[in-house]
């Protein structure tokens, strides 16, 4: 029983720390009110997910999947690498759109703190119809 648990721990320690990292990022993302900090949290969250994938692809004693002239060579799994390359790029794309939004929010609200934004929004009176003057069209 004990040894079973131990082998479990040894077999999974990599995953568990990765889970810890993921959750730290996730925590920053959902607990912090600063929009920039949220985005940092998102980045950490996603990067940690990448680690999970790459951990899956690792073969002990293997090498990077670049073929060499050695029939005995053991390569790690290339597929997670490919997926994560894609995911990294997607991540930076999301981050940049998020940053652009944060910049615009700062210009429109004067702050990037969520509670201050909420306060301002609570004060907006919907009833005051902007009228047609606000429209650009004809």
């Amino acid at each position: 029983m004990m040894s079973e648990l131990l082998s479990q721990v040894v077999g999974s320690y990599n995953y568990w720390i990765v889970v810890f990292l993921m959750m730290t990022g996730f925590y920053i993302l959902i607990s912090r009110g600063n929009l920039i900090k949220k985005l940092v949290g998102l980045n950490v969250f996603q990067t940690s997910v990448f680690m999970l994938y790459i951990s899956l692809g690792k073969i002990t004693g293997g090498t990077a999947p670049i073929l060499v002239d050695d029939p005995e060579a053991l390569y790690s799994n290339p597929l997670p690498h490919v997926l994560i390359l894609t995911a990294i790029v997607v991540g930076i794309a999301t981050t940049s759109v998020g940053l652009a939004l944060a910049v615009r929010i700062k210009e429109a609200y004067g702050t990037v703190e969520e509670d201050e934004i909420n306060e301002i929004e609570a004060g907006i009176d919907d009833r005051r119809a902007p009228g047609r003057a606000a429209l650009r069209g004809p």
Binding site: F26, L29, I30, L35, K38, L42, F45, Q46, T94, V97, G98, L101, A102, R104, I105, A108, Y109, I117, E121, I124
Partner: peptide
């Protein structure tokens, strides 16, 4: 409406999660 910006941001966060 400027709230379009904040709703887009919230959507971005929730959507990315």
């Amino acid at each position: 409406d400027r709230r379009a910006l904040t709703s887009a941001f919230r959507y971005l966060i929730m959507g990315s999660v």
